[in-house]
Computed example of a mutant assay.
Amino acid sequence: MEENLSLHERSWWGFRSINFLSDDYLYEDLISQIFLRLPVKSLLRFRSISKSIYHMIENPNFIRMHTFQSRKRVIFRHRHLDELVEKDFEDFFTSHSEDELPLDGSLSKYTGIPVLKFPVSGFDIDIVGSCNGILCLFGSRTGISLWNPSIKRKLTLPYYPSWLDTNKSCKTAVGFGYEQITHDYKVLTITSPVSRQDTQSRHSILVYSTNLGSWNEIAPPRTCFTHVISRACFIHGALHWVVKHYQDQSDKTGHLFILTFDLSTRVFGKILLPEPNYETRHLAIINGSLAVISTQNELNLIRVNERVQ
């Protein structure tokens, strides 16, 4: 029934669903609970059953609940080197369910797991964020795209404007998250000078709203920082980055802290790193809490901040 839905079956589902949704809330809730357990491909087909079913499936709350109930998947990035010719090959990605994780390092566990094919091509395409099953892809030549691999849909964002575009010594960091109040997916870019000696140039910060379909420039944070160190980490409605700030050109070490941006209030914030912070270059989410990953003498130290809400 999932693969080929006959006309009789379509009529039965359509008739019953219309009656259920219009006559009794109990039936409406029952239908919703049934549909929450269906795969995405089936839901896309069932949208044509009736207007009631269509609006239920397209409802942001239904999409959010379906995402939370769906089987979680983990994406691995593979990077390999041909030692004979000392040449890097193009990275590739694979998607795994939690019971497919090859934690023992055995290559045999990858048998039958296809390579994740991105809808855009480029030597430097990378996943810079993910939220509710949607991946944010970024490449220096292809720009920014939002892609849902479950339904094979892609949204290519318009080129992000910046007054720093002509400066080749700048670098752009990208963050991606979901704003629950307005049901809006947002992308934030921070363009900063690469050189740590350039402590005077301001940052160019832009926010893209999928609801509005456009970029808007916002004022940089009052908290000074030189450049972004880590990838963005989205948790509790806010984006988080590890950033470094140099006081002046004589400052050889600089200091690290976490820069935050609340997608609802559009306000930047600052979180001090736990001491000793060593060399912190990565953030992660562990059991719903923000975690920092530091390195000291080739030893990785992971600390979880359960108080960040």
Rank of each mutant, 00 (worst) to 15 (best):
P220K: 11
I181N: 09
E58D: 14
F261T: 14
E28Q: 10
S169L: 11
E100I: 12
K244C: 09
Q249G: 10
L301K: 11
P119Y: 00
N167H: 12
S50F: 00
F234E: 02
I34Q: 06
K270M: 03
P39G: 08
S97F: 12
I271K: 02
R307S: 15
Q200V: 14
W13G: 11
L146W: 02
Y27K: 10
Y178L: 02
I49D: 02
K152N: 04
P220A: 12
Y185E: 12
D124I: 05
S42M: 08
R141P: 05
G143S: 00
T223F: 12
P193K: 11
R47E: 05
T142Y: 10
T260K: 07
V128E: 13
T260E: 04
P114Q: 10
Y278T: 06
K41N: 08
L43W: 04
R222G: 11
S22G: 08
S230T: 03
K270L: 02
S289C: 12
I218A: 05
N167T: 11
L206H: 10
H78Y: 07
F62E: 03
L116A: 09
F62W: 06
H255D: 11
R307V: 15
N277W: 11
E2Y: 10
D124P: 00
S42D: 12
L212Q: 14
S140R: 09
L272P: 00
D126F: 01
H203S: 01
I31Q: 03
I190T: 09
F93E: 07
R79S: 15
E86R: 11
E98D: 09
R45V: 13
L81K: 12
I75H: 05
I125V: 15
K109I: 04
E28K: 13
D91H: 13
S17N: 13
W147E: 00
I31P: 01
N19I: 15
N300Y: 10
H183V: 06
I285G: 13
G129P: 00
Q309C: 12
K41C: 09
I286M: 06
R77W: 10
H8F: 13
D126T: 15
K168W: 13
T199L: 05
R141K: 09
H80F: 15
V308A: 07
Q249F: 03
F268Y: 04
Y110Q: 04
H227K: 08
S70L: 03
L164Q: 14
V120K: 01
G133L: 04
I258M: 01
N4D: 08
S294H: 02
H55Q: 07
E98L: 15
D262Q: 11
D88S: 13
S32V: 13
R281T: 14
R231S: 13
L26R: 10
P274I: 01
K51L: 02
Q296A: 11
K109L: 13
N167M: 08
C170Q: 09
